[in-house]
């Protein structure tokens, strides 16, 4: 039984196509939120953010920011419904977006709604 880790990750939109992406441990940008590097401490989060700012300058991504999230059994879940939506696609069109392309996260966006 793995514990739940709570922390922050960096998300942005890819500049050329606008797709929501997440910064990974190797410094790449992945469309899958489960690949995201989860910073458990503020210092680590700041380092991730700095890295993202470089990639903004390099015109890879735009609008990078930190979000609260948790990792459990290898799956990452964002704290806010808006971010869960970005990690999946529209809840009213399950046939579209990451959820339909095998890039979705391991949760449903509208839990509790």
């Amino acid at each position: 039984m793995t514990a739940t880790e709570k922390g922050q990750l960096v998300t942005a939109n890819r500049l050329r196509d606008g797709i929501a992406v997440f910064l990974t441990r190797s410094g790449q940008w992945s469309e899958v939120i489960d690949d995201a590097a989860l910073a458990l401490e503020p210092q680590a989060a700041a380092a991730l953010e700095l890295r993202a700012k470089d990639d903004e300058k390099a015109t890879l991504v735009t609008g990078a920011y930190l979000i609260d999230a948790e990792r459990r059994e290898g799956r990452v879940r964002a704290a806010h419904i808006r971010e869960r939506m970005r990690a999946l696609g529209p809840t009213v069109r399950l046939d579209l977006g990451k959820q339909a392309e095998g890039k979705g996260a391991g949760f449903a966006a509208p839990e509790g709604v």
């Binding site: 606008g18 808006r82 970005r86």
Partner: peptide
Amino acid sequence: LYLQLHAY
């Protein structure tokens, strides 16, 4: 052209 949640 907007940048929205999932794409432009």
